[in-house]
Amino acid sequence: MSNYKSTDALMRHLRNNGIAISGSSQKQQLINTGYFHGYKGYRFFVSSNRRIPFTSYNEINATIQYDTKLKSLLYGKMMLIETALKNIALNTIMAEINSNSIYDMYDKAVSSYKNAPPGTSEDIKKKFQNNKLNLQGSIQNSIAAAYRKENPKITHFYNTVNYNEVPIWAIFEILTMGDFGYLLSCLTQDVRKKISRNIGLNLSSDTNCTLVYKYVYALKDLRNAIAHNDVVYDTRFRKMDPSKPMKQCLMLEMGLPYINFKTIGDYIILICYFLKLLKVSKTEIKAFIREFEKITKEYEGQVSSAVAAITVHPDLFLRMTILKNSI
């Protein structure tokens, strides 16, 4: 027996579950956002056991629109940061190895059994070597996938008689942000430290130089959620717990009492930190923060206080004020 429900039947189902919805306008909203992507996707905050006390479809639609505006606001900044970090890492690596050969990078800049620091245990040496082999496999898979898709950044090197190796810079062009983060994690500590310094990261609490790739992993989770139109505003995309250096760095640099990456505000803070490091103007960064505050306040005005108490963190605007003062 089919469980299919027409849009009118879904509206009746929502009304039966305490959600006020009626009329052609809200019917079209339900069609446009989808019952499953929209209502099912936004009826809870972070996890399904934390239901949001919506009483009208207006509140659900306002939440969907708030999330959409957030993704639009964040997209451009994320692309800027991703491109800049890749370029800084690329330039640092090529300067370090004095070459644009991927094989020279593997040999001189990537941790392995043979280049482990003196005193490294046998288990750690083997871990380095395993990571290096995984990295080589991952990059080769990325090249093969790009060639299959006829990506000109890769086909140029294989379909020309005079070329037989894809340079590092072309490989960086096709790396996903996750693959880029993994590459950074496989580099020697010395090379990671140089990349971190060239970015401008505060390394005072980053003894093992893990900060650069862990921040990339954190940004990757947000970037992928934006790219795939997943829910962003409640940070359900978060796949990693922040390390102590990740929290301490932002607290020191931005003057904040705490960081835990459990609210969208913390990701706004992280983005602003990188924009600051990348020498984006104070005017532009503060305009970005003000736009985030504006769309959040507009959203608060469109939902009940009971809904806002769950969906907007109580100290969000205080933290944004501290952030603006630190820029």
Rank of each mutant, 00 (worst) to 15 (best):
K71T: 12
E122R: 12
D67P: 04
Y113T: 04
Q136L: 08
R12C: 02
N115C: 13
K5G: 05
Q29S: 07
L74F: 14
F44Y: 15
T55D: 11
P53H: 02
F45A: 05
S6E: 08
N49E: 15
M79N: 09
I52D: 01
M79C: 08
R50D: 09
H13E: 10
L73H: 09
I60R: 02
S22M: 00
L14M: 10
H13Y: 15
L14A: 05
D123V: 06
I81C: 02
G41L: 08
Y35L: 01
N16A: 08
I81R: 03
L85N: 05
M79E: 09
N49M: 03
T7S: 01
P117C: 01
M94R: 13
G76Y: 07
I124A: 10
N17W: 01
Q136C: 08
G76H: 12
A109D: 02
E96D: 15
K126G: 09
M11C: 04
R50P: 05
L135E: 01
T55Q: 01
T55K: 07
N130R: 14
Y106Q: 09
L133R: 14
M79T: 14
N131V: 01
A95C: 14
N61C: 03
G38A: 07
M94F: 04
S72L: 15
I97M: 03
Q26F: 02
I21V: 12
A89S: 14
K132S: 08
T120K: 12
Q28N: 12
H37L: 09
Y103P: 02
V110Q: 08
E122I: 10
F44M: 06
A20L: 08
K77A: 06
A62M: 08
N91R: 14
Q26I: 01
N115R: 10
T33I: 09
H37W: 06
D67L: 00
G76Q: 12
G23H: 00
N61D: 09
A20E: 10
F128V: 00
K125M: 15
F36D: 11
E82P: 13
R51K: 13
M79I: 04
S22D: 02
T120G: 13
A109P: 07
L90D: 08
T120L: 10
Y113W: 11
T92S: 13
P117F: 00
S112L: 04
Y103N: 14
E96C: 06
Y103L: 07
E59D: 11
F128H: 15
K77Y: 07
S6R: 12
S99E: 10
